[in-house]
Nucleic acid binder design. Structure first.
Lengths: 204, 204
DNA sequence: ATCAATAAGTGCAACGGGTCAACTTTTGAA
DNA sequence: TTCAAAAGTTGACCCGTTGCACTTATTGAT
């Protein structure tokens, strides 16, 4: 307890304070997830989660703005990966094709690989409140994506076609919900976007 | 008050019961709308609305499942019109073109005609909760629209491309939100869909 | 070493949307 | 006339969420 020098040169030059805060946060998220898996999202109350993590509900809400957020802890980079999928796509690949690949890779395929992740996915889209929240969060990347699309395609930044493609691409996985074969559904949906984009945009 | 015979041969051969029920419903919706306009959606509580209509909150919720529903009373036919826009489109017109026309007509243009309707629109998309609710309701027509599209195009009913077009078409007005010129944004978005559809589908 | 400032956390009461169960009235019809 | 269903009432209650006043660390500057 006497590290005057920069204690941990790791990624976080944090003090005891920040560490404790992070610990509380993790405790909350873990307790919540455990309880949700055990008994289902709706059957678990906020007060119970706070109890399990041994904090007050007020504290809980200082870490997570709403109940749904407890499920989606730590998913930064999401946007970065999305934008990179478009910006760093292999030469010759169209923008919609890059987006399709990204969608298939991260929103469809991942399901049948990781076992924990499968359970997580089942929890999420078995719970309307969580589905909606996830989609809302996902759509927050729309403007950023639209901007990247504009840059990559050389279209004016305010051309609404960019916003349209961004929106549709982000909605595509949702459009595929309920189909027996989501993989094919996503593929087909992006076919539509790709052909349309090729005809409407100049660069692509 | 002594009409033993079928009093009003109008559209509703309803008894006193149904009439009273409808009256209560109307009273609630009107009170709610009036208060919302006066002070804003979020500043008006459910209990206050119930009071204004002189019923209990329990009764209110027997007529409207959630607070948002108070704003969207009586909008049946919506789906019928939507499906008709596709089914009865002029010969030679593509499905996406028909959908674009419908979108422009009912979700964009109507704003700058009727004065009351403009106020209503402002209320709705000035209130996130109402926007979200409206969109959720609107998306409920997705499967019906997908089916109509399949029939009209001759594609197999379970081809996910139909669901995709339906979903995108219903989302298009939303994709245009925030643009300075919504009309053009919607048009461009449907351009994308039209070209894509033409290339992907056979009938169109 | 000390001290004020800051931020985390607490406890509790409250609010607003929404539900529930039990009970009273109306109303339609047998 | 009688009876069952539907509409409405009442009041308590749950749940997510917020506000407020308060305690307790932790920190940086002195």
């Amino acid at each position: 307890m006497s590290e005057t020098t920069t204690g941990i040169p790791a990624k976080a030059p944090e003090g005891r304070r920040e560490r404790k805060k992070a610990a509380t946060r993790r405790a909350l998220a873990e307790a919540a997830l455990r309880l949700f898996f055990e008994r289902g999202y709706e059957q678990v109350g906020i007060r119970e989660i706070a109890d399990a993590a041994d904090v007050s509900t007020t504290t809980l809400f200082k870490h997570f703005p709403v109940k749904e957020a407890l499920v989606f802890d730590e998913d930064a980079q999401q946007e970065a990966r999305l934008l990179a999928a478009v910006g760093d796509r292999p030469p010759g690949q169209s923008i919609p094709a890059a987006l399709r690949e990204h969608a298939l890779r991260f929103r469809i395929a991942a399901v049948d690989s990781d076992a924990d992740f499968r359970a997580f996915t089942e929890l999420v889209d078995g719970t309307p409140a969580l589905r909606d929240y996830a989609q809302r969060m996902w759509l927050r990347h729309e403007t950023a994506l639209a901007r990247t699309i504009a840059e990559e395609s050389g279209l004016p930044a305010d051309d609404p076609i960019c916003a349209a493609l961004a929106h549709f691409a982000l909605e595509a996985p949702r459009a595929a919900r309920g189909c027996e074969d989501p993989r094919q559904a996503v593929t087909r949906a992006f076919d539509l976007l790709e052909k349309g984009w090729g005809a409407v945009a100049t660069g692509g």
